[in-house]
Computed example of a mutant assay.
Amino acid sequence: MLRLITLDMTNTILKFRKPPGEQYAAVAKLYGLDSDPLKLTQAFRLSFKQLEHEAPNFGVGGIGWQKWWLGVVRRTFTSAGCCADSSSLDTIGHHLIRHFSGGNAYELFEGSTTLLEDIRGRGVVLGAISNSDERLEGILLHLGVRHYFDFVLTSYAAKVAKPDPRIFQQALSCAGNNITSSEALHIGDDLQRDYLAAQRCGWQSVLVSSKLHQVCREAGVTVDDASMVTCLTDLHSLLDRYTTS
Rank of each mutant, 00 (worst) to 15 (best):
T154S: 14
A184D: 02
A161M: 06
L51K: 13
I13F: 15
N131A: 14
G93D: 00
I63H: 07
L136E: 08
L96G: 09
F100W: 11
P56N: 05
G21W: 02
A84G: 05
S173N: 14
L239I: 11
G121W: 00
S205P: 09
M1L: 15
A128Y: 03
K29M: 03
V73D: 08
R200V: 08
S227A: 12
S88Y: 03
D133Y: 07
L70F: 07
G71S: 07
R98C: 06
S227V: 09
H213T: 03
S227H: 01
G123I: 11
R217Q: 12
D133V: 00
A171N: 02
L116H: 00
N131H: 08
I5M: 00
S101R: 05
A25G: 04
A80F: 08
G188P: 07
K39Y: 07
E183G: 09
L2E: 05
F168G: 02
V221E: 11
E22C: 01
R75H: 09
Y242A: 04
A80P: 13
R17C: 12
D36W: 11
D150E: 05
S245F: 01
K15I: 14
G138Q: 01
V160L: 02
V229C: 10
Q170V: 03
L207A: 09
R135I: 04
L196H: 08
Q50P: 13
L2C: 05
P19G: 08
Q42Y: 09
L96F: 00
E107P: 01
G176T: 11
A128W: 14
L40R: 03
E110R: 15
P20G: 08
P37A: 15
P56T: 11
L116M: 10
Q170K: 10
L212F: 09
K29Q: 06
M1K: 15
L238Y: 06
M228A: 10
S205F: 08
H147K: 06
L33Q: 08
K18H: 11
R17D: 10
T78P: 00
F149W: 07
S101H: 06
D118W: 02
I92E: 04
L7M: 11
T12Q: 04
L143M: 06
G121F: 04
C231R: 07
I13R: 04
Q192V: 05
S210G: 11
A43K: 00
Q66V: 03
L115T: 04
A157W: 09
P37N: 14
A43H: 03
R217K: 15
